[in-house]
């Protein structure tokens, strides 16, 4: 089984946020308004945060998305198993089972799970914009980055139809696909020959808050030599 992982090279990342919009469109994440974003209701599965890094004078932009922990603190606390570590190693969220208690959002040290405070709304003209592969979440449930899991499902089906094994290249999340600075590398961390495994083996690699023992599958490469 592949262990899907994402390597973010902070040296390459320019903080352009193309990934943020790509994710928003790909996953039908609703827009905010000035008021709702000020009230902490910005819906985003990936966002830029400014992080202090050793050896850097200034806080550097860092794209923050679900870290897809191998030992996720959020799944343990879910009272209904609505969030769980799937066999693909992706932390899944079953929207239809979620009761909206927001325990998982609070247990996550990265605060990357977001809650649908209100029913998702788009102007009528934008209804056609929805990605048919991704369900729109109702009000009152928690949602999060899924590594564009629907793309994995589609890639798997396509590979099956073509009578071959799924290759690492068949499956790329939307953020990785658009990254202009080529800062994001995605693939199977267990495949020793993959670019992502090579990047993850870099001496610059670190997992954010690894001291918490969450074992993220999102690996950052720090800036500098």
């Amino acid at each position: 089984m592949a262990r899907w992982g994402l390597v973010v090279d902070l040296d390459r990342c320019t903080g352009c946020q193309a990934c943020v919009i790509a994710c928003k469109h790909e996953n039908n994440v609703p827009f905010s308004t000035p008021a709702s974003s000020a009230a902490g209701r910005l819906m985003t599965w990936i966002q830029l945060v400014a992080v202090e890094m050793p050896g850097r004078d200034h806080r550097v932009p860092l794209p923050l998305m679900c870290q897809q922990c191998d030992r996720p603190p959020c799944t343990d606390v879910c009272p209904t198993s609505a969030t769980y570590l799937s066999t693909d190693g992706i932390v899944a969220q079953v929207y239809a089972r979620c009761i909206g208690c927001r325990y998982c959002t609070n247990a996550c040290p990265y605060v990357v799970k977001v809650f649908n405070w209100t029913p998702p709304e788009w102007p009528a003209s934008m209804q056609g914009m929805m990605n048919p592969d991704v369900s729109v979440r109702p009000k009152g449930v928690v949602e999060k980055c899924t590594f564009c899991h629907h793309r994995l499902m589609i890639a798997r089906e396509r590979a099956k139809a073509e009578g071959r094994e799924l290759a690492s290249e068949d499956y790329v999340p939307a953020c990785v696909q658009t990254c202009p600075a080529e800062a994001l590398t995605f693939g199977d961390l267990d495949d020793q020959h993959s670019a992502v495994a090579a990047a993850a083996a870099s001496p610059r690699a670190f997992q954010w808050m690894e001291e918490l023992g969450t074992k993220p599958k999102v690996i950052y490469l720090r800036e500098g030599e």
Partner: peptide
């Protein structure tokens, strides 16, 4: 929504 990020000042 991207305006002002990463300082957290969208819009």
């Amino acid at each position: 929504e991207l305006l002002g990020q990463p300082e957290g000042l969208p819009w």
